[in-house]
Amino acid sequence: MTAPSLGGVVPPVCTPLTPDLDVDVPSLERLVDHLVGAGVDGLFALGSTSEVAFLPDGHRRTVLETVVKHAGGRVPVLGGVIDMTTPRVIDHARTAAESGAAGIVVTAPFYTRTHPAEIEDHLRRVAAAVPVPVYAYDLPVSVHAKLDGAMLLRLAAEGVLAGVKDSSGDDGALRTLLLAQRDAGIDGFSVFTGAELTVDTAVAMGVHGVVPGLGNVDPAGYVRLYRHCADGRWDEARAEQERLLRLFDIVNAGAADRMGRGSSALGSFKTALHLLGVIDHPVTAPPQVPLDAAETERVRARLAAAGLL
């Protein structure tokens, strides 16, 4: 398989829900327009920020079909096919390919512990099952396994993988991967960072793009940041990165004594999108806890300070 290289800003699209917990399709379409209109380079539907782990299979299909259809070819759409075992992931992958996704995003299997050899076999089997590019998702905090850089590059050289999203938080391993890729002369393998607060540093190290959850709220900011980095305007990039870092404090809006960090972060993104008029409801999937009125005001204050309200 020969896959085109993808890079730039590829936000993981939030999944708007109705109060009855159905997919809010009109809000999702407006969110796609909000992102594409800001100049992003692609969309990642059904990632962690999309609440993929909380969505029934029918919701997943609706999300992917809606995003692909409404994007209308303006940007490529990657579909997350995250699940516990290889057969389940292959089912999701085939659905994503049938829905028109330009590529799929795959974690290691989880729930049970997997050996590195089993993870490699998993990625090979998924890639063999679909006619679209496959991107690995390095997410050890959730799947309890760090993807091996040598394995990733071996699969890249063989054409099995088109790229990786690195959400490991291990900057040393990320830099080692980028250096090894460069030394091996492996082209067409896109390395994305999921660390939205250090994009300038990551681009300086050589990453090809960023997948920022906060990019749902301020996609134009991340587009500016990435373009500043790509053009070598490092002082401007630092200033934009620091503005986004301050805005990112919205993820701390939820009180720690009544909700988890996931509820606070995803709830703050959706609350911000609701306050900006992009989505109709700031509903998150259960058992996540919604933000209350005081917490919503904290989000509003941060949006105003960032120049978004």
Rank of each mutant, 00 (worst) to 15 (best):
Ala129Pro: 01
Asp138Asn: 15
Phe110Tyr: 15
Phe110Glu: 06
Pro133Met: 10
Asp138Cys: 11
Tyr111Cys: 12
Leu139Ser: 02
Ala136Asp: 02
Val134His: 00
Ile119Trp: 09
Ala97Tyr: 07
Pro131His: 06
Pro116Tyr: 08
Ala129Val: 01
Ser99Leu: 08
Tyr137Phe: 14
Pro131Glu: 02
Glu98Phe: 15
Val126Ile: 09
Tyr111Ile: 14
Ala127Cys: 00
Ile119Tyr: 09
Val126Glu: 01
Tyr135Thr: 08
Phe110Asp: 04
Ala127Ile: 00
Ala101Ile: 00
Tyr111Ser: 14
Arg125Tyr: 02
Ala97His: 07
Tyr111Trp: 13
Tyr111Arg: 12
Gly100Met: 04
Ser99Gly: 08
Tyr135Cys: 13
Ala96Phe: 04
Glu118Thr: 15
Glu120Ala: 14
Leu123Tyr: 06
Ala96Asp: 06
Ala128Lys: 13
Tyr111Val: 14
Ala96Ser: 05
Pro109Tyr: 10
Ala102Pro: 05
His115Met: 05
Asp138Gln: 11
Ala108His: 05
Ala96Lys: 04
Ala129Met: 05
Val132Glu: 02
Ala128Asn: 09
Thr112Leu: 15
Glu98Asn: 13
Tyr137Trp: 12
Thr107Phe: 06
Pro131Phe: 04
Ala127Gly: 04
Pro116Asn: 08
His115Asp: 12
Val105Asn: 08
Val106Ser: 09
Arg94Glu: 14
Ala96Asn: 05
Thr114Phe: 10
Ala96Ile: 07
Val130Thr: 01
Ala129Gln: 02
Gly100Gln: 00
Pro109Met: 12
Ile104Ala: 14
Arg125Lys: 12
Ile119Ala: 12
Val106Gly: 08
His115Arg: 07
Phe110Ser: 13
Pro133Lys: 08
Asp121Phe: 03
Ala127Asn: 02
Val134Lys: 00
Pro116His: 06
Glu98Gln: 15
Val130Cys: 06
Pro133Gln: 05
Thr114Ser: 14
Ala108Gln: 02
Gly103Asp: 01
Arg113Ala: 15
Ala128Met: 09
Arg113Trp: 07
Ile119Cys: 11
Tyr135Ser: 13
Gly103Cys: 01
Pro133Leu: 10
Arg125Trp: 06
Thr112Tyr: 15
Tyr111Gln: 12
Leu139Ile: 12
Gly100Val: 01
Ala97Ser: 13
Val106Met: 09
Pro131Ala: 03
Pro109Cys: 09
Val126Pro: 02
Ala136Lys: 03
Ala127Leu: 00
Ile104Gln: 13
Ala136Thr: 04
Gly103Lys: 03
Ala93Asp: 08
Ile119Val: 15
Pro109Arg: 13
Pro133Val: 07
Val134Arg: 00
Arg94Gly: 09
Val105His: 09
Ala102Tyr: 03
Asp121Arg: 13
Leu139Lys: 05
Ala108Ile: 00
Ala136His: 04
Ala96Thr: 02
Ala129Gly: 04
Thr107Asp: 02
Val132Trp: 02
Val134Asp: 00
Ser99Phe: 05
Thr95Tyr: 00
Thr107Val: 09
Val106Arg: 09
Thr95Phe: 04
Val126Ala: 05
Thr112Ser: 15
Arg113Tyr: 03
Val106Leu: 12
Arg113Ser: 14
Pro131Tyr: 04
Val106Tyr: 09
Val132Gly: 01
Ala129Asn: 02
Val132Lys: 01
Tyr137Ala: 09
